[in-house]
Amino acid sequence: MTPRIEVSALDCLTLRLFDRIDERNMPWLLAAAERLTERLGSALIDLVPSYTTLLIHYDLNRLTADQARAEVLGALNGLTAAEDLGGREHLMPVWYDRRVGPELALIAERAGLDVDTVIERHAAHAYQVFALGFAPGFAFMGLVDECLATPRLATPRKRVAAGSVGIADRQTAAYPVASPGGWNLIGRTPVRLFDYRQDGYSLLRPGDRVRFEPIDHAAFLRLGGDDSAMPSMEYDR
């Protein structure tokens, strides 16, 4: 690990700890986030973790750019990886089906597998939540089995239904709200991922781990899932 500090804005620094996405990064990123939060105190406006970086938004009325940089370097002194990520474990039910996951067959064909095996492999791993972004509550998770890695769609859909579960390269995610999107859809979860009434709004946070649990259509509906917006109605071919 060779930390680098980059200027992102007049009052923002990016602390880059790694150059490659890896699940082993998260203990270091969370440890650095805790140190920075303690060290910067009230001068810290926001701290945003990502795959390999931390975005540090600080108060210019309390710190100069040079002081902020010095504080960041000081926070890294003797840094060790967090032993306990402190995140929550989530079991997320998913209805894996071509009706809501039109790329299931495509991924299976690319991997030389049948659809049932694709589902088994996707549901076999506990995924690390790396970052939130794109839309409120949208959690970037990984890493999926290499054989399931699939590039984003060349043309994004105009509308992806809330709860849609997809794959993009070696990442996986569930759409918290209906929005445009270019991920390969493989199923849908009935879980509410974003709710302004809950603390922090987002169900998932960096450091959490998620395991997907295959369920059938009846269970999906019983748990409050909505199958009314099928992909064929969501975008134009």
Rank of each mutant, 00 (worst) to 15 (best):
D19R: 01
D22N: 12
M26A: 14
P27S: 01
L30N: 11
L30D: 06
A32R: 03
E34V: 05
E38V: 07
S42I: 05
A43T: 08
L44T: 04
D46E: 15
D46Y: 13
L47I: 07
L47C: 12
P49E: 04
T52V: 14
L54E: 05
I56S: 05
Y58P: 03
D59T: 07
L63P: 01
G74C: 13
A75G: 15
A82S: 11
E83R: 11
D84Y: 07
E89I: 15
E89V: 14
M92Y: 07
P93N: 12
P93Y: 05
V100A: 05
L104P: 04
L106I: 14
I107H: 04
I107C: 10
E109Y: 06
E109W: 09
R110W: 08
L113K: 05
V115Y: 13
D116Y: 04
T117D: 04
T117G: 03
I119P: 03
E120N: 07
R121F: 10
A123Y: 05
A124K: 08
Q128N: 09
V129G: 12
G133R: 00
G133P: 00
G133I: 00
G133S: 02
P136E: 01
G137D: 03
F138N: 00
A139Q: 02
F140L: 11
G142Q: 13
V144L: 05
D145H: 14
E146H: 01
